[in-house]
Design a protein around this nucleic acid. Structure first.
Lengths: 234, 234
DNA sequence: GCAAAAGTGTTAGATCTACACCCATGC
DNA sequence: GCATGGGTGTAGATCTAACACTTTTGC
């Protein structure tokens, strides 16, 4: 007869792949690890799951501690459960990806914690299986972003169509046709054009848009066809 | 300074939502639970994760034990990590959904284990949060099946277009236009028509098809548009 | 005026949807 | 011959991809 008491118990952690976007490239928030083994090496933001909290709670707590932010877009995407993924002791890690508005929060991040933003294609080597986690998270982000408008979570309140297109191109590692992109975005009803223009990157200037939050909430689960020729790994 | 030793350890389990299809309705494989608490109540197939195995290994082992089958289509989809989900002690559960060909394996299942197939809409109440798991698994199956040809995993070697359509309709809880469905399926290149017909459900008979395995493997990650007007929860 | 980025228009082709219509066969 | 489920055809609407074109404005 199987009983609970005779079964092995394990450490359980959460790790967060935190994405940001600075208008040019997709970025990743990494921290210098604060405990042995591999102390002071780059790692994902993570921590152990406490006895009174769910894994979601733990991920939010860890993010809050490292970024000062509440209410971040957070999505659990995979458990890493290989018995030997940590050299000291078995730890199961529940991985989350997080999307944050980099502009809003960068000041706090860089001062209060040993956190640093890296362009996603120029990240340092990470500890353990964190490199795999990042790779998996990028795939998952790509998948979700092709079907749902989650990338708006990465943008500031005001943004331009060229910025939005760059973001899509970064996430999908591809180039898109501007005409078709604009038409598609405008047809979703998710964008509200403002009168103001951003002239920082062109003479003509690009209109600022804001998100139609009502439409965003109501149509979030509607599957859009945001990327042509979609081929997705996961 | 945080150290591993001072952190809490938890039980970790896997639970499998096993789907089957008998040609008419989508089914769920459930077992009578074999340990306290809630012994002899209906539950998902599950078990504790052993010290030397990954969670994937554990899911495969548990499935093998309960179904006699190797090489089942298996996909991890969520961790259930609420601290109080089990009344005795905290257990984190890694949930997998599995797709199996019901015809091939039903004999073994029903004899050797206390396993039973239930139509997915007529399942009994399950223990703990297993009802939520089933509901989440159905959503995830729906999502994936709308974009990738995974439902073939549920079908026998030979199947007809009407059967396939019924399966899609069951999974998505909707009705589809036969003409459009057939055209779409044939255009994927995934089907190979056989000479034989199934006359069991009509006078004219429906051609049997088999899966083009090569195409299935090569195009698996290509995102198809298998369902119109898609709205997906997860 | 010219260069450069933003944004609009156009067009051929593909796909989608709804629905009408033929097919094969057991009774 | 007719009912029944299987399967095909078709026309209009919609969507797509590619690319040419216009707009704006700092220099």
């Amino acid at each position: 007869m199987i009983e609970y008491a005779s079964q092995p118990h394990y450490l359980v952690a959460v790790d967060c792949i935190v994405f940001g976007f600075d208008g040019e490239s997709l970025k990743l928030l990494l921290v210098k690890r604060g405990l042995e083994p591999e102390i002071n090496k780059w790692s994902l933001i993570g921590g152990f799951v406490g006895p009174e909290e769910s894994t979601d709670d733990a991920a939010n707590r860890v993010l809050k501690k490292n970024t000062g932010l509440d209410g971040i877009y957070l999505e659990q995407f995979k458990v890493y459960g290989q018995p030997n993924r940590d050299p000291i002791e078995r730890i199961l890690s529940v991985a989350y990806f997080a999307l944050i508005d980099i502009n809003k929060y960068s000041a706090q991040l860089n001062n209060d914690f040993q956190a640093e933003w890296f362009p996603v294609n120029e990240k340092p080597e990470l500890i353990f299986d964190h490199n795999t986690m990042v790779s998996d998270a990028r795939k998952r982000l790509r998948y979700k972003a092709a079907l749902h408008p989650i990338l708006f979570e990465l943008l500031p309140k005001k943004f331009t169509l060229p910025q939005l297109q760059t973001l899509f191109e970064e996430v999908n590692d591809t180039k898109m046709d501007t005409g078709n992109f604009n038409r598609k975005m405008n047809s979703t009803g998710l964008l509200v054009r403002l009168d103001e223009k951003d002239k920082s990157s062109s003479k003509k200037g690009a209109y600022y848009f804001k998100l139609n939050h009502k439409k965003y909430r109501s149509d979030f689960h509607l599957v859009l066809n945001l990327m042509p020729n979609l081929r997705l790994d996961i």
